[in-house]
Amino acid sequence: MLELRLVQGSLLKKVLEAIKDLVNDANFDCSATGFSLQAMDSSHVALVALLLRNEGFEHYRCDRNISMGMNLGNMNKMLKCAGNDDIITLKADDGSDTVTFMFESPNQDKIADFEMKLMDIDSEHLGIPEAEYHAIVRMPSAEFARICKDLSSIGDTVVISVTKEGVKFSTKGDIGTANIVCRQNTTVDKPEEATVIEMKEPVSLTFALRYMNSFAKATPLSHTVTISLSSELPVVVEYKIEDMGYVRFYLAPKIEE
């Protein structure tokens, strides 16, 4: 028996909006500690990891570990039927091949349930070891989204370089080049507006902007984004979900031919 009641149902709606274009089908894993997902995009270039911890749910019952295969496009269609203020409850019986999404309006005057068929997904799970990163940049998520969008109108790839001067996002294309430098800036009114750069070593890596723009769809989940870079590792773009967990995107770099 599985029953997860999320008062802030809009969080789940935002999570699906953030990952549905990157991943078509995925297994959602539910255990006593939380609701999670790990999935690669179809070309195995990027990986998404989601964690929603049990304590973030108003009610969390998961009697045994369960993996539920879902088509994210179909799941998104169902979650779009929930209001932004609705409470969302996920329910599944042991051995069932369906999951039920229940939507309750805040004043309980409307209750809807949507039953979705589960699917068998043969997905590969990757072990991601804890890593020391050469540079970690925390910045406003909207700023990062804006930079990725702007650069993608000029070129296909972004070079992210972290030095003592700041973090530089560069691209080049047929029409010209672009460089955007963000300096550390902690003298702001609100902490979420700060740009904070922790650098152990300078690092410079190249990534496909198409994926970065896809990750930026998680912007509504968090005011800030954390970008962790190491010269021999995929970049980690993390959006923290307040009090609950995170959505992390891992992207393999491009190397020179």
């Binding site: 690669m40 799970h125 072990g127 496909a208 995929p234 891992y250 393999a252 491009k254 190397i255 020179e256």
Partner: peptide, 14 residues
């Protein structure tokens, strides 16, 4: 531009 590496080149299947 450049060769796109796969995420599977970095992390092992569990």
């Amino acid at each position: 531009t450049g060769i796109q590496l796969s995420i599977k080149e970095f992390y092992r299947a569990t």
